[in-house]
Nucleic acid binder design. Structure first.
Lengths: 242, 242
DNA sequence: CGTAACGTTGAAACCTGTCAAGTACGGTGG
DNA sequence: CCACCGTACTTGACAGGTTTCAACGTTACG
């Protein structure tokens, strides 16, 4: 099914058969888009939301000089701009990092969901709050950690999220981003990200080359970044809104 | 009414009389709490959500050494931990800055709301997404701005939010926080916050003394911090989810 | 009027940014 | 197959912003 990865590893099992069907029916169309493309522009009115099926996307804001701050990464199964449903206009841009395949979910159908499927509604709501929880952790990361901690934290999070959707093999996962992207996410310069990656490599904690991340020592990364996956609300943690 | 400030200045007018009544009825009790108290502890299971009626609260996370990162401020009218409704456990602590008065909203009543009042449900959802939008702006602030920009940004945001609930007189508003609090919100040391505040004062942009902020030149603050209030989704901006 | 919390200031250390140059790699066209 | 090109990555030296450490001033309050 199209929506198979939605909330995978995050309490998807709370969805009933009818919930799953209602969600599946809310997808009007499946489309593709190339890498490094703008999908939704800040301030533009949106009528649909986007369920990412394959590829990597990100949300970002540019400063006055055009320097980008990435505020979120999105992996398959993520409802990238579900918040557009209740907000109508977004306060940031959404773009692709890699080629993507995504489902188009018209807001009209979501309105119907909220009127007929209260539990599914709460789960959709929950999924937008996961984003907020990740935002908070990024605030912590930027506010309290040094460069190494920030980068390590980013890899810890992506490793955990990739694991939930079964994209991690042997501690390795595909992450087709550049060092510039990492810098833009971590509030650093690409030059410094380069130095940090070298340092992490020399600690035998992580390698990142050719768009492939290999976790060598998760414990070291977690210690460096004070990472605690609680905020990802994985299924191993007891959840609410059932 | 108890819930008068909820979504004030943020599209409250979209609430119908019955929505307002349903929300009002969801408040089980009104309580008070002293300053600098913990209201909800990270990881603890929650059964109620908190509608702040009077006073200031904040959400924060501590690092390994006990250094606090404030991830959100809350002013009257804010549903401080509505996300607890669908998340059940919170990933951060919630505490008071000043003495507060707040409404207790049992999750059971919220479940009923989601089953009977789809539009109110969407508005509650929307209110949690406002927090997420503010989180994103804080990420931007920490990732892309220097110390002056961060502090200026914080004051711009609080000024705008206080204005929405009519707590600004003549460019001044009460903000009973210390320089340490500001530092913990902006990812700086209190020593440096002190220097920044002096600098902003010398620019004739802002004074902050004795828990009172006075905006002298909003334009300067907005320029310094690249502040754009779009993300606050004020009523002057067209909104969705009607 | 003493005390504790908060605020203020200076000097030095440290981390990250900036600038500049050079390397590695993959794709394209001859 | 190789020369060429652009993009991404790498490294070094130096500049600059923020932290750290330490001391002192100020204010509120019992």
């Amino acid at each position: 099914m199209i929506t198979d990865l939605f909330l995978r590893g995050r309490g998807r099992e709370r969805m009933s058969v009818t919930d799953i069907q209602a969600l599946e029916d809310s997808v009007e169309d499946v489309r593709t888009l190339g890498p490094r493309q703008l999908l939704v522009e800040r301030g533009r009115e949106v009528q649909n939301s986007t369920l990412l099926l394959e590829g990597l996307m990100c949300r970002y804001m540019d400063d006055r000089e055009g320097h980008r701050q990435i505020v979120a990464f999105h992996v398959p199964g993520d409802f990238v701009d579900l918040h557009g449903f209740t907000m109508k206009r977004l306060d940031h841009d959404i773009g692709t990092l890699t080629p993507v395949r995504y489902g188009v979910v018209p807001h009209a159908r979501l309105t119907t969901v909220t009127e007929s499927w209260p539990r599914l509604t709460r789960l959709l709501w929950f999924s937008t709050l996961l984003d907020a929880a990740m935002h908070r952790e990024w605030i912590f990361r930027l506010g309290r950690l040094g460069a190494e901690g920030r980068v390590a934290h980013m890899f810890c999070e992506l490793h955990a999220r990739m694991a939930m959707i079964e994209r991690v093999t042997d501690g390795s996962f595909t992450l087709p981003v550049t060092q510039v992207d990492i810098a833009e996410a971590c509030g650093l310069t690409s030059v410094h990200v380069n130095r940090v990656l070298r340092s992490l490599r020399e600690r035998n904690a992580l390698t990142f080359k050719g768009g492939v991340a290999r976790i060598l020592d998760l414990k070291v990364l977690e210690t460096l970044s004070e990472f605690d996956p609680l905020y990802l609300y994985g299924s191993d943690v007891e959840l609410g809104a059932g």
